[in-house]
Each structure stands twice: as C-alpha cells, then as structure tokens.
Design a protein around this nucleic acid. Structure first.
Length: 565
RNA sequence: GCGCCCGUAGCUCAGUUGGAUAGAGCGUCGGACUUCGAAUCCGAAGGUCGCAGGUUCGAUCCCUGCCGGGCGCACCA
C-alpha cells in the first residue's frame, strides 16, 4: 500500500505493507485495531519470512482465543502480491511467506533506488541537537572519546537518513576550575621552558603535551605577560593552550571521519551572554529556587517521581559564582533548545549521577520529558596482551585516540565500537586487535563489497558488456540462496529505521555481518560469470544489490567501503 | 549505606517494545585454492542465559530478594 512517497525514497518497508494488510483484515472482520503490529524474522524457515503475535495481543480485546483471531485475520487478509501464503501457528502466531516472484521484482526496486535505499521519513521534521565527545580541552583525546565519536557520528547519520535535521555539537568547557588549572599548569611549563624554576600547581596537568606546547609557545616568540595581573596571565595562557589543544582534537576527529557542525564555547556562548543569570531568574520566577546558607538552590527533589532528583542542587555558590550545573542548564535551555526540539547528549559513566538533575531542570523549564535524552557511553577498558592499561589524565598516563588509530586503523576501530551497545562496558585488547585485524569482522563486510567489484572487473576483462540494471531480467534468480539474499536486502530499511529509533547503531553493524555471511558462501558455491547470459546478468544484478546495501549500511556507520582492499 | 548500569559458549559480545529448538566473531580441532580475490568457504566441539522465587498460554527479557563486577553519591566539572 503505497502512500505516494516522494520519488527516490523507495516504497514502504515490507513490514509496513504487511501491517496495512493486517489492519485491513481486522477491519473487514469487525475486530478492534491494534496500536502496533510487531514483526519479527523467525529463526526457522518453516515459520515463514515474517511473523507477528498481533493475534495474541489482541485476543483479550477481541474476546476470542488467539488462534481464532489469527484465523480471522487470514480469512479477511487482502490479496497482496507481496504475500504468497499466511499460516496460523503455535499459540496464535501469524506467519507470512513472501512471494518469490515478488521478491525478485523487489530487487529491481532496490537497484533503482540505489544510495537512497534504506532512507526513511520517520524522523522528518524533527530538529535534533546531538552533542558528543566534548572532552575537556585540557589534553589530547583518549580512547573513550574514540568510542563516543563513533557512536555519536553514527547516530547523526542514522537520524539524518530518517529525515531528521541534525546538528552535531562539541561543547568546549573553556571556563571554570579546570580551565584555570590548565592555565596555571601551562604557565608553569612555559616558565620552565624559559629556564625559570616553576612548580606545577596542586591539581595541575602533568602530561607531556603541555611541555611540548610550551616549547612551541617559546619558538613562536610570544610575548609573555610577565608581571601582568594574575587574571590576565591566566587568560593569556589558558586561551593559548585551549586553542592549540582544540586544534589538535579537531584534526584527530577529522582523520577519524567525524566533523562537528558546531563548536560551542562555554565562555563565549554561555557565560559572556549572561545566560546563567537569566536562567536563575527564570527558575526563581517559577518558584523553584530558594536561598540557604548564602547559596541559591534548585528544588530538583520536588519535581515528581519521574523527573525528580534525590536531593536539591546548588545553582549559585555563596561566593556568588554560578555552578557548572547552572551554566549547563542555561546552555541547554537557551542555546540547544532554541534550535532543536530534541536534545541528545552522550555522556561518560562518570556523569550518570548528573542526569536526574538535568532532566529535572529541563522539565522545570517546560520541555517535554522525552525531549531531553542522555545516552551513557560506557568505559573502554584497554588491554594489551590481556593486561589492563590504566588510564589517568591526572597521572599523565593514557593511551591516546591517535595511537589507537595508528594501531588498528579507523575503520576497524569504528566498527569495533559500533558492534557493541553504547551502554555496555567494552574491553579492547590492542595487541589482539592488531594481530587479528585481518580477521576483524569489518574486513569481512568490506571484503564482500570488494569481491563484488572484482567480479565486475573480471567481467569487463572478458569483454562482457553488462546491460543497464533496469533492463536485466531478474526471474532467473531461482536458487534458495538467491532468494534468501534478496529477502535479507528487503529487511534493510526496517533495520535502519529501528536502529535510528532505538539510537542503536550496532543493529546495522550486525545486519551487515549477517548479509556478508550469506553472500560469501553463495559466491563460493555459485558462479556469477558464465555462459548462460540471462542467469549471469541476473546474478550480477543481485551482486550489485548486495554491494549497494553494504555501502549504504557502512555509510551509516561512518566506515569506508573500498572497491579493492 | 543509597542510586544507576552490567552478569548469555574458553574470550569479546548480539539476542529485534515477553515469543516457537538461545546466536555471531575470535580461539580450539578437522577439511577445501589449475575456475569470478583463501581478508573466503565446509564441518566439529563448546550453554543450569549469575542464583532463588514470582507474574502468564509463554521469561535471557518484566517484578522481588540474594551473590558478583563497574560507576556515581560536592557550594568539582
């Protein structure tokens, strides 16, 4: 049942057509309509290509046994060219068997849609603000940032592919105590560079990179603000260090394939615009603040069960200075929500205790509960030959994102991060990853695409002229494996859509592995290039479809799909 | 002590809003290159889904308790 989709975006995913069929059948049978109709791909072939439990969920409302509901659906199901047969099975499952002829025809549609295959409209009209990485500009990026960057960037791609308007953002904490600690540390390093005795401050940053930065500073012949007031000196050294460190971070991220639409400065875009003061007034006007012992508190514990925090939080210290929390609330309310109706943040696990107060604040300021989402990207435990590599910025020892990329490569790193759920901790063995890089699943997927290109190259060398894809007769595709591959390709739009909805890129990664996992054996046991021209062209078309979906899928993950490896 | 996340094959992890006989990769063992790329393929072994209850037609999934691991509980960020 087409709804007149815009050209180039393809037909509705197969499951949506089946759902339409079920709704029609229920209406014809005079039964109540379900809110949703969930389709799953059964593990066993005898259970069909798709199955739904809708009859079971509807049994109560229909006041009939599940199997009877299922039988009524079958009886009143409209005749769709997609469907060959409907079965009622087990306690009341509805099993759908797709029509082989329709499937091979659908391959033609996939080829026609091309790089738009798998795109959808589910998120059309939504403006999403997506923030990730946002590491403090106090040092180089480490491994967790690589994970967050992979997840965040892929989420942006997934949401955009579903029609959302996404702004990716890197928030720079270039103010506050950490900024000050950086400035003091750097000032000390510069002094040392000029041969003066200077000690790092108590909570300073001891890493090598500040020494290198100090050398660069001296070589540039900068005028040191010796004797200037402390505030000026810290501003001078802090700004210099932050801008250089950010430059480096941005370069590494770009090499990783991640570019941000917006780099927001806490100082310039929030504090200098006096947004914290403004938001305190707004919260006060809503009677959500109170004074206690000279500080201003937010009644975060009184905002209802779901939105509430376990205690109230300080917004303005007794010194008169706004807390990090207050600045963050202002930043979200005035900056992020000004240009978006959905705000998604990726945080590290050390910030998860921070989430309830932020949610409480967003809700207090009138944003719908689900408009503000936080995804916790769990830690990466780094191992080298089974031994944990401890990471601590304070102690100045860590494994850098740069080193990771050198050792295992961009594609392998991204794919590895994206084959895990973002909220599950991940163990990454560097030595193992390097040694096994040839067997890494990412190459398995990429190889399938490269192989397909290779077939075309081979065909060209033999002087075979392949007709335009649209002119190829696909009906010779009769093998079970061929049909299975096409059916898998047909699942792709549902996978892409579900991954975007659930904010789970790993679904795409697993799908691609499975697709490659049925393509490689097929390639091994069936010749593409052969004397039977009709069959050869049909198989070439099938290969093109596989390559197309692999490319589209890897694109969503930000992983390359080279023509040859 | 309180809160959040996590316990699935030797290891690293999937398991689609509760579905039918729990999967993949790596590792191990045994096979396959004179034919489109062997970064591949074929086969085998490997499980009390942490433990114990509960909810129902049905639980790896939901609820309760316990055990084990991670993280958080600032007028830090």
């Amino acid at each position: 049942m087409s709804r007149g989709e815009a050209p180039g975006t393809g037909e509705l995913p197969i499951t949506e057509r089946l759902t339409e069929g079920v709704r029609t059948a229920l209406a014809n049978a005079g039964l109540p309509e379900p809110e949703t109709c969930v389709w799953e791909v059964p593990r066993q072939a005898e259970h069909g290509d798709y199955a739904t439990n809708v009859a079971m969920t509807l049994a109560r409302a229909a006041r009939r046994p599940p199997r009877q509901v299922a039988e009524l659906i079958v009886k009143h199901f409209p005749s769709l060219r997609e469907v060959e047969r409907l079965d009622v099975a087990g306690p009341g499952f509805l099993n759908v068997f797709l029509s082989p002829a329709w499937c091979t025809g659908a391959l033609g549609e996939i080829l026609e849609v091309g790089d738009a295959y798998g795109r959808g409209e589910g998120e059309r009209g939504r403006r999403v603000r997506l923030e990730f990485v946002s590491a403090n500009p106090t040092g180089p990026l480490v491994i967790v940032s690589a994970r967050a960057a992979a997840v965040g960037d892929s989420l942006a791609r997934l949401l955009r592919a579903q029609g959302a308007q996404v702004t990716t953002e890197y928030y720079v904490n270039d103010a506050g105590t950490q900024f000050e600690a950086l400035a003091r540390s750097f000032e000390a390093r510069v002094a040392q560079e000029f041969g003066e005795p200077a000690a790092l401050p108590e909570n300073g940053y001891p890493g090598e990179y500040l020494i290198e930065l100090a050398r660069a500073y001296r070589e540039e012949g900068r005028a040191r603000p010796v004797g200037a007031p402390e505030r000026e000196r810290l501003e001078h050294f802090g700004r210099y260090a932050v801008s250089r460190i950010l430059e480096q971070q941005r370069r590494i991220l770009r090499d990783y394939g991640v570019e941000f639409d917006v780099w927001t400065s806490e100082q310039r875009d929030v504090r200098d615009r006096h947004l914290p003061e403004k938001v305190l007034e707004e919260l006060a006007a809503r009677k959500l603040t109170y004074e206690h012992e000279g500080a201003l508190w937010f009644r975060s514990s009184e905002l209802g069960e779901e939105a509430g925090d376990d205690k109230d939080r300080v917004l303005r210290r007794s010194t008169g200075e706004a807390t990090y929390f207050a600045v963050d609330v202002a930043y979200h309310h005035y900056v992020k929500f000004q240009s978006a109706d959905r705000v998604i943040n990726l945080f590290g696990p050390d910030h998860h205790g921070y989430v309830p107060r932020m949610k409480a604040a967003m809700r207090a300021l009138g944003h719908p509960p689900d408009a503000f989402e936080v995804l916790i990207v769990q830690l990466v435990t780094l191992l080298r030959d089974g031994q944990p590599v401890r990471m601590s910025k304070r102690r100045g020892e860590f494994v850098l994102m740069e080193e990771l990329l050198e050792e295992v490569g961009r594609d392998a790193a991204r794919f590895t991060f994206l084959t895990r759920r973002h909220d599950s901790p991940l163990e990454f063995d560097l030595a193992l990853a390097t040694r096994q890089s040839a067997e890494n699943p990412v190459y398995y997927v990429q190889y399938a695409r490269a192989r397909i290109e290779s077939i075309y190259k081979q065909a060209a060398e033999q002087g075979i002229v392949v007709p335009p894809l649209g002119d190829i007769d696909l009906s010779p595709l009769r093998e079970g494996e061929e049909l299975a591959i096409i059916k898998r390709l047909l699942q792709y739009p549902d996978v892409a859509k579900a991954a975007a909805r659930a904010l789970e890129p790993h679904r795409v990664a697993y799908f691609l592995q499975e697709l490659a996992g049925i393509f490689h054996p097929y390639y091994k046991s069936h010749r593409v290039i052969q004397d039977d021209r009709r069959l050869m062209f049909a198989r070439l078309a099938l290969c093109t479809g596989v390559g197309r979906v692999i490319r589209n899928g890897l694109e969503l993950l930000g992983v390359s799909a080279p023509e040859s490896m």
